[in-house]
């Protein structure tokens, strides 16, 4: 099903970027029911990869497999391999905590801790044994999340006083403070207004210079606007994966065409 064969991935990686995440034949089940069925794809470095598909197609499940957040859901079973920089993140000796330190995540609804803005950003580095200048790290992260101008004078006020869009950028800053390689975004704008959404999309453009971003979205315009690569999932199977331009303008599969042109879903 997948358009991207192993050799394609190699050409892509030599031409553009090497893969950060390699998904190989992954099947994920809730109990007996497969939610993701034999999906393989390679996520290149310093690119934004969008995962699209109708609701319930398993895109969030797939995303959460990338930093082992599915570990917290009982009765989830996984087959296949997910390689991060060539190492299997589900290998027995690997500590999931270590995975999540390198692969950060931003959730659908902004979920700042009910603490100060500073504490929100500083907590990640401090529990992970960061010994440098914490204040500098916090400032840098908030700046990279394009939030510094708005909060620099009230770092020690509650994060819950921020607007929804600001809270979501704070959550991005919080993830950046860990200096991850990859940032997973699970429909990060679905709870936000159009203006806040535009700001986050701009931010993603800036962030891809330093980070690899994987975003799940149900909003096709958003995928078309922000991503370099797009993967289209349907019923847990990967239908098409390729350059975003190509997926949206010259899809190779009828199902993809129907979906991106809004004929179903």
């Amino acid at each position: 099903m997948n358009t991207l064969t192993k050799s394609d991935a190699q050409t892509l990686s030599t031409e553009q970027a090497r893969p950060v995440l390699d998904v190989i034949d992954v099947t994920i089940r809730y109990g007996e029911k497969p939610a993701i069925n034999k999906v393989s794809l390679s996520i290149p470095q310093h690119r934004i990869t969008a995962i699209i598909g109708p609701s319930g197609c398993g895109k969030s499940t797939l995303l959460r497999a990338f930093n082992r957040m599915n570990d917290f859901i009982p009765n989830v079973g996984m087959e296949g391999q997910i390689l991060y920089m060539g190492s299997d993140i589900y290998a027995r000796q690997v500590d999931p905590v270590e995975v999540r330190r390198r692969i950060g995540m931003v959730f659908q609804k902004p979920n700042p801790f009910p603490k100060s803005i500073f504490q929100n950003v500083a907590w990640g580095p401090s529990i992970n044994g960061f010994s440098g200048n914490l204040e500098a790290r916090v400032e840098q992260s908030i700046r990279r999340a394009a939030l510094w101008e708005e909060v620099s004078d009230r770092l020690h006020e509650s994060a819950l006083a921020l607007s929804g869009g600001q809270q979501q950028r704070l959550c991005i800053a919080r993830a950046l403070a860990m200096e991850p390689d990859v940032i997973l975004m699970d429909e990060p704008c679905s709870a936000l207004d159009p203006v806040s959404t535009a700001r986050i999309e701009d931010l993603m453009f800036e962030l891809k210079e330093r980070y690899t971003i994987v975003i799940v979205t149900h909003n096709m315009q958003q995928a078309a606007r922000v991503s370099n690569l797009t993967a289209f999932l349907e019923n847990g199977s990967l239908v098409e994966f390729g350059e975003t331009d190509q997926v949206f303008t010259r899809p190779q599969h009828k199902r993809t065409e129907d979906y991106v042109t809004g004929r179903f879903g």
Partner: peptide, 25 residues
């Protein structure tokens, strides 16, 4: 809310770190 635990785990917190610093307060 579970979102607080999720946020903590996604930052690479262990169970105890998440409970101690975020859930308990």
């Amino acid at each position: 809310p579970d979102s607080i635990r999720q946020a903590a785990f996604a930052l690479g917190a262990t169970r105890w770190q998440a409970v101690r610093a975020q859930v308990l307060p």
